[in-house]
Design a protein around this nucleic acid. Structure first.
Lengths: 246, 246
DNA sequence: TCGACCGGGATTGTATGCAATACGCTTCCC
DNA sequence: GGGAAGCGTATTGCATACAATCCCGGTCGA
């Protein structure tokens, strides 16, 4: 329920509100990667002082969603390809653990919830709505919550957000990252108490997401590689002085 | 090299210094679980304002090493048994991933480094020095660094710290958490390119650490359980109104 | 004796102020 | 014309000020 505007929020709640707002804005790509995030502009917009904005920004920086350069302020992070690989690698590890914790332990009620969620994804996807991306991510988060492991939930939330940012940078625009059938299959394996199969499916699922999006653009990211054929056709060689990232 | 005291530190460095100092103090149990952490006192001790102390404390709170309750300040976190279980669960998942990334990919140089480190642990352990605990933890961190996955490294660092705090609460005092032979065996499996065996060993290793320390005191943590036999011998029954955690 | 009530002091939450740094523009020299 | 130097503005880093909250005594009344 909406809170009356005059009522003062409890201590610490406003900082959290700013944090959440910025976080959503980044993940939903209202703030695109690389965007500058000036403290006073944000503070003015939200009606809080720079102090609280700074707190929110440092939290986001820890999560890897924003980058803070000393004396130069904060920007929405622009993950490198290496960071992208790292994130998906860790995510696969965490989600495999999640599968093992969940296999055969879901209550019928939980299964129904998951099924409903998949139906929502389905629907959004059919409409081509942009919320399909959000919903696909929430499926994973929903599973994490069902483990009852709060730390795992936090890590999966964090790494999923990071992956969302990565996809917004390297992924094809608006390609729904998760095929529906994959989520359904995973749920089926979980219900069947087949931990290995669930883990394998999830692994393949994430691998597919990562590859569809990130590896597809791996070459494009390095302008030197991109230009190589053109250079070669003109008989041009790279400058010997600079190494391509040792 | 030590920096001259008059030289101003680069921007952001002092906050980080406070953060690191507090972190070490907690992990090395100079600040024991539950200790109050007043902003003023800390700031005075380090020669910085409360602003920077707050920044450090919020970072530590995110990592789970301190607990901040609004309007009541920060204390060194006092993890519950459930949080302890969660932490070890996640840690096992992360370290298994680490084993798979490392198996068969360690350079001879890296192996030598690890062997040296194990020798150090050995030595410290023989002397019964308290640094054996720190060294044992560093072994895991060293492995994480060798994966080249910065995110994994950060997560393992975080969860290891949390486990260290947990052991300081629930573990037997000064029991070296890691048997040396276990580290050696793990390294051997890694060198042998036997990912499955390395993963299994690491799993067993962490399971053993967790069980030796945490599960051993599982009963002791619940005062009701602890008192049950005394109550029964006196013919006393628990109050029916309150449920023991539904 | 016990509980409720109520300052006083200590501690936190947030805003704001000041100094330091970086960026962009103009100007000047080659 | 290109680049280097200088200056003004915008923005950050950090400290401090003020208000709000909480804890801990004591006091009072039942």
């Amino acid at each position: 329920m909406p809170r009356h505007a005059d009522a003062p929020l409890p201590a610490g709640a406003r900082a959290q509100a700013v944090y959440r707002a910025l976080r959503r804005a980044i993940i939903e790509q209202a703030l695109r990667a690389g965007t500058k995030l000036p403290e006073d502009a944000i503070g003015e917009r939200f009606g809080v002082s720079r102090t609280l904005v700074r707190e929110a920004l440092t939290r986001l920086a820890i999560e890897g969603l924003v980058e803070i350069v000393p004396n130069r302020g904060a920007t929405v992070a622009l993950p490198t390809l290496e960071e992208a690989r790292d994130a998906f690698e860790v995510r696969r590890g965490l989600e495999r653990l999640m599968m093992e914790l969940l296999a055969g332990r879901l209550s019928p009620e939980q299964c129904a919830n998951l099924r409903d969620h998949i139906a929502l994804e389905d629907e959004a996807r059919a409409r081509g709505g942009p919320e399909s991306i959000r919903l696909a991510g929430e499926f994973h988060l929903l599973l994490a919550q069902m483990t009852g492991n709060a730390l795992l939930e936090r890590y999966i939330d964090e790494v999923s957000s990071r992956c969302a940012l990565i996809l917004s940078v390297y992924g094809r625009p608006h390609s729904p990252e998760c095929a529906i059938s994959e989520h359904s299959q995973i749920l089926a394996a979980l219900e069947n108490d087949d931990a290995d199969r669930a883990a394998a499916l999830m692994d393949a699922h994430l691998q597919a997401v990562a590859e569809r999006a990130v590896l597809a653009s791996a070459q494009a990211a390095d302008i030197r590689t991109l230009l190589a054929p053109f250079a070669a056709s003109e008989g041009l060689a790279p400058a010997p002085g600079r190494k391509p990232r040792p």
